[in-house]
Simulated scan of single mutants.
Amino acid sequence: MSLDEKFISVRTAFYDIVGSFFRGIAGFFGYPTNPGMPTMSEIPSDQYARSRFLDSLPTHSTYWPPVQRPETWFEMIFGPTPKVETVPRYIYESKEEGFYNFYIENYKNIYFFPDWLSEFIQVRLHICLDITVLETIREVFFVGLMVYSQIVILRIALSWFIYINPYTFPWCYIAAAVDWTEDILQGIVPAILGVNITGSVFLGILGVLADSLNHLVFTMPFLPSEGEETKLLINEQMKNVLVFHYLPILWYRYPIPNDIREFWYNERPDILEYMEKAYQNLDIQFLPDDIVTQLNQVSISNSFVDFDSNLNKMVSTELLSKNDFIPTDLVLTKLHSFTSLENFLF
């Protein structure tokens, strides 16, 4: 008989004593008839299904440091420069949905602008189809955060070398660029074993901000809320996607930018024809402003010509010859006034 088998009875007796002790204490609180507090409140089925769906979505993964794929001599010596790893937009055209459709893969960690901010950028700043400016600003901001994070790392490294005074030239510039963060965070972040970790915390904040730019998606000319969740077969795999298609809601609420309408009229008449045919029931102007102005002028000119011809038909020669009905001079004066008005307008 082993030593463990000899103490089985002792172990069982100890378990029974402890169990009886806790059951006795729980009896004062109504055990076993009292079920206790519910572990969680009842969740509606639609919210529960939505939560399960979001949990099932994949994660848009990024890598830092970036994959070592140098393309120039500079990158081969000093390493590749940081680049934004964005969520790709796949643009497509179809006869049913139009020409400005795109879809993106649906991830659980992607971000969008609020609708009001996206509307402000498109309507007030006139950034609609060409989002090169937004992508450039994002990339510059991303590289700036990466460069500043390297400065923070250098400042942390300087604090470990006691023979370097960080407040002397040229290190004082690095200290001035980073030490203001310690003044803000030192009263919030405690020291651990006497070591100041505000620099490490601030470095983590910079990393989160920079990584969030990788997951930011621009939906112009659509609003983020116009995305429709569906599934598509991509590379022989069914994937959850967000589709932005048909007519953007801002092109219905506000006039379509004139440069886009001029592009349709001059270079892409097929898009103009589709828009006029597909959305003919909506009160939307698809022609450029100068073309609409010319058509209005021609319409007004034709209306004056029709008015003159109708007036000549209405007033016969026999009627003009009768001085006792309508004075001939008065009629000729009226006709001359209409002709002068036409010449003045055109």
Rank of each mutant, 00 (worst) to 15 (best):
E97Q: 09
Y31L: 08
G144R: 05
F21R: 14
L203M: 07
I271M: 00
Y279W: 07
N281T: 13
M1D: 14
F53H: 08
S200Y: 07
K108D: 02
N34T: 08
L320H: 01
F102M: 15
F222I: 02
F346A: 10
K108H: 07
R23V: 09
V123S: 06
F325V: 15
V241E: 08
T86I: 08
P257H: 13
W160M: 12
T72D: 06
G199P: 07
A13D: 09
T81Y: 14
F142E: 08
S212W: 01
W116P: 00
D4S: 14
L272C: 03
T33K: 11
L213V: 00
K95I: 10
M220N: 04
E342C: 09
I17H: 09
P257C: 11
T81S: 12
Y15C: 07
K239C: 07
F102Q: 14
K313S: 05
I192A: 11
L3R: 08
H126N: 11
N214G: 07
T33G: 10
K313Y: 15
R155W: 04
L203K: 12
T81F: 15
P70R: 01
G207K: 10
F29G: 10
N258C: 07
V208K: 12
F7C: 01
K231C: 04
L203E: 08
P70M: 04
P35H: 07
E226C: 06
Q122C: 06
H336I: 04
S212L: 04
L216W: 02
E96G: 10
L193M: 04
L209H: 01
S337Q: 06
P82T: 10
G194F: 15
P166T: 13
N235T: 04
S61F: 03
I184A: 14
P66F: 02
L311Q: 08
R11N: 07
F141R: 01
L213P: 03
I127D: 09
L3V: 07
K322E: 12
P255I: 03
C172Q: 15
E262I: 05
I151M: 15
V298M: 09
Q150E: 15
V243T: 11
M40V: 04
I188L: 13
H215V: 03
